[in-house]
Design a protein around this nucleic acid. Structure first.
Length: 366
DNA sequence: GACTCGTGGTT
DNA sequence: TAACCAAGAGT
């Protein structure tokens, strides 16, 4: 910015009086700040807080996290999505325990080198936890600065983002990065929202170029959004001798290392029931009969909108009713027959968790 | 650069 | 309701 610009003082004054009382803002403990930043990626703070509180009770220190089992960390993350964040968080904790004496490094480059930490999170942790003069440019910051400074390039593309990052660096008040970064994000989250921004209530409205030009709705410039593909998926809850069959997904790809009921895509012209029978044959070598329809659950993820058809299954024909047979797994690393009440102890994708919750009680009396 | 990786809230 | 969006990172 060229002119003497009241933006930063106005922003900091506003944040001093209007910031939310988030748990990690009490003492800015580096471990707490780190966990909060990983949790907050691609979601919103209101959604993070209850997970954060439970996570810190379960893993109070970096040492406790480093010593944890991955299954326990995934269970604590269940429902938040992007589960590689949880696995990278654990991997980073172990790396810090082994290579940094159990303490988060304060240096930006050392933080940036940890798994699961990119430019944004490294800057956020360095500034918020350690008071380093680094920027932390997330979607809020890009939106706020695109409006205040009238950035006319798409901020989600590298060139546009580079402009915002350079701008954020120029504006950064030395020694105040902790408040400056959080204030930019807080303003974006509370007032300078994507839709229905509260310009009348905004502390920097007087210096906002988009506001002055009356083009707030046109900033930031958006990129094209990818199409959403409808996807039909079927899954089966196989019950035998009072136990339920679950399998642990492979260590790569979506929902890596999480538990699920077997299933898969319903092919063109195929019924949900047929798809389940086929998928169980392919993934477990079990021959199953569809006993009942349980639920239809709709959920979306990234570029898909899934309709999940859920059915109750029994082993077909020749299985000894008193023995829990072993599968031949092709799409999983491990499997278990568990009592219905034990399902609460395993981390499932949200769609399967919804199914379990819907079934609570009713089904298991069979 | 273009994909993948989740989920739930808002409009 | 369908579309858009969020304190992004890894490949």
């Amino acid at each position: 910015m060229s002119d003497s610009f009241a933006f930063v003082p106005l922003l900091l004054d506003w944040f001093a009086t209007s910031r939310r009382d988030l748990p990690w803002r009490r003492d800015y403990d580096p471990y707490a700040v780190w966990v909060s930043e990983i949790m907050a990626q691609q979601t919103q703070m209101d959604r993070v807080v209850p997970y954060f509180t439970r996570f810190m009770a379960r893993f109070p220190t970096l040492a406790a996290l480093a010593a944890a089992e991955e299954d326990a960390v995934l269970k604590a993350w269940e429902g938040l999505g992007y589960y590689s964040r949880a696995r990278n968080l654990l991997a980073a904790a172990r790396k810090i325990a082994a290579q940094h004496g159990g303490h988060l490094p304060a240096d930006y480059e050392a933080i940036r080198a940890l798994p699961g930490i990119g430019d944004y999170t490294a800057g956020a942790v360095a500034s918020i936890a350690f008071r380093q003069d680094t920027v932390a440019v997330d979607a809020n910051v890009m939106r706020v600065l695109a409006r205040v400074c009238d950035i006319d390039a798409p901020v989600k593309e590298p060139a546009g983002k580079a402009r915002v990052v350079a701008l954020a660096r120029e504006l950064l008040p030395p020694g105040r990065a902790r408040d400056y970064n959080q204030a930019l994000m807080e303003l974006g989250a509370l007032l300078c929202r994507p839709k229905n921004p509260d310009c009348p209530g905004c502390p920097v409205a007087a210096v906002c170029q988009a506001r002055h030009l009356d083009i707030v709705a046109d900033r930031p410039v958006l990129s094209k959004t990818p199409d959403i593909t409808p996807l039909l998926v079927a899954t089966g809850v196989l019950v035998h001798a009072g136990k339920v069959f679950i399998q642990k997904r492979l260590p790569k790809g979506a929902w890596a290392n999480m538990w699920e009921f077997p299933g898969g895509r319903i092919e063109d012209g195929e019924t949900a029931q047929a798809a389940i029978v086929r998928e169980f044959a392919e993934e477990t070598a079990f021959t199953v009969d569809v006993a009942a329809k349980l639920a239809v659950i709709r959920h979306g993820y990234t570029t898909y909108r899934v309709t999940l058809h859920c059915h109750l299954l029994r082993l077909a024909g020749s299985y000894d009713p008193s023995i829990l047979p072993a599968p031949e797994l092709t799409a999983a690393q491990e499997s278990l027959w568990v009592a219905p009440g034990e399902l609460a102890n395993y981390a499932f994708p949200a769609g399967h968790r919804k199914l379990i919750d819907q079934l609570a009680g009713s089904l298991w009396s069979l």
